[in-house]
């Protein structure tokens, strides 16, 4: 029987078990790195640096995880804060790099052109709308969970998701009609 996230967290807290923490990283690395890649506009190196920082902060502060929210929600929150701090440090967000976009394309995706348009449409959204859309529509968080991650009121999350989706729909209207 595999251990739950809560069991692993308890092992890290009580026994400082690095293997248990490694298992937590293995379970959540894809989701955290995926979110950060989208937030960092496909800058893979930056996203992975921020993901490492996220997990290191999670390890250092694991005592403050109360288990009231899912462990993944807690991690998303740390990841989003890492991203915001980094963006503040850089003063401006990283621009779109076409070569990286091409390198990142997934060959299994049905239509690479649609994928690229969707990525670019996402990256054109303001950061608060992009983050809300990614968390709710892509990562499958509830509005309430996204509000905790982004540290904004529930109503604001709903508005941001609605606005973001409307903009994406408008941008991708031509694809939908095909």
């Amino acid at each position: 029987m595999s251990l739950t996230d809560a069991d692993l967290v308890a092992r890290v807290l009580l026994e400082d078990d690095h293997h248990a923490f490694a298992e937590l990283v293995r379970r959540h690395q894809s989701a955290v790195r995926g979110l950060l890649r989208q937030l960092a506009r496909s800058d893979l190196a930056l996203a992975d640096d921020l993901a490492q920082e996220t997990f290191l902060r999670a390890y250092k502060n694991i005592g403050s995880f109360r288990g009231e929210a899912k462990f993944s929600t807690w991690l998303y929150r740390i990841a989003y804060n890492c991203f915001r701090e980094d963006a503040r440090r850089r003063k401006e967000l990283v621009g779109i790099d076409e070569t990286q976009l091409e390198a990142e394309q997934d060959p299994q995706t049905a239509d690479p052109a649609l994928r690229q348009d969707l990525m670019q449409a996402l990256q054109l959204l303001p950061i608060h709308e992009r983050a809300a859309v990614l968390l709710c529509c892509q990562s499958g968080l509830s509005h309430d969970e996204a509000a905790r991650v982004l540290d904004i009121p529930l109503g604001t999350v709903k508005t941001n998701v609605l606005r973001g989706r409307e903009k994406l729909k408008k941008t991708l209207a031509a694809w939908r009609e095909k």
Partner: peptide
């Protein structure tokens, strides 16, 4: 349709040594 496209946009990212790098940096 939009939700489906967004979910498709998030494929599984292979670990490729990421976990090992994080564990190496743990205090």
């Amino acid at each position: 349709w939009l939700d489906a496209q967004l979910r498709e946009e998030a494929p599984y990212i292979d670990d490729a040594g990421f976990t090992a790098r994080v564990v190496q940096q743990l205090p």
